[in-house]
Write a protein that binds this DNA or RNA. Structure first.
Lengths: 92, 92
DNA sequence: CTGTATCCTGAACGATACTG
DNA sequence: CAGTATCGTTCAGGATACAG
């Protein structure tokens, strides 16, 4: 569970995962979906998620550079878990 | 889900909850179960959990002062959720 | 388009001392 | 027994500028 804490640490991490649960996204799409995150925080969190094996980053060939972020199978397994967490928060 | 984040924010918070899931505890029992937390952090987290409605604090009459910490019903509902989170972390 | 670099702030943590 | 007070450290986050 040290692993869980390391992978999901940070206030915004789960929100980034939530966005990716809806499907893969480009950098700008993520930025627009999460306007409260600065570029720095967004790219920090993405790097952390890739490092933790939750998401993967694919660069498309050609210019301008395009990148796609998608959850790994491990990341997808986070779906029901985070849903349970959010349901708990909603259940007042 | 802002609520969830506020209630469980902090590196050690879920570990305190995990200890309380096993049953109610006194302050010293918690300290011994979580030796890596300083007094300050432990009492900060406990206050936060009480504030968030996850745990409650009962003072027993008499001296020396004794206190018991126990999860509220809402806190207990966190059990399966955190379990799922930890299972995800363990599933490599 | 997709980031990195810098600099700063604030919150959480950690250690130690002390009290009703 | 059950904390609070104080002080320093560490790290996530916020703002802005700039680069491949």
């Amino acid at each position: 569970m040290e692993i869980t804490l390391a992978a999901l640490r940070g206030r915004w991490t789960t929100l980034v995962v939530r966005e990716l649960l809806r499907g893969e996204r480009g950098y700008t799409e993520l930025r627009e979906a999460l306007p409260r995150l600065s570029d720095k925080v967004l790219s920090d969190r993405l790097a952390q998620l890739v490092e933790a094996g939750v998401a993967e980053r694919r660069r498309l060939p050609g210019r301008p550079v395009r990148t796609r972020y998608a959850l790994t199978p491990r990341g997808h397994r986070l779906g029901p878990v985070l849903q349970a967490l959010w349901d708990w928060g909603a259940g007042r």
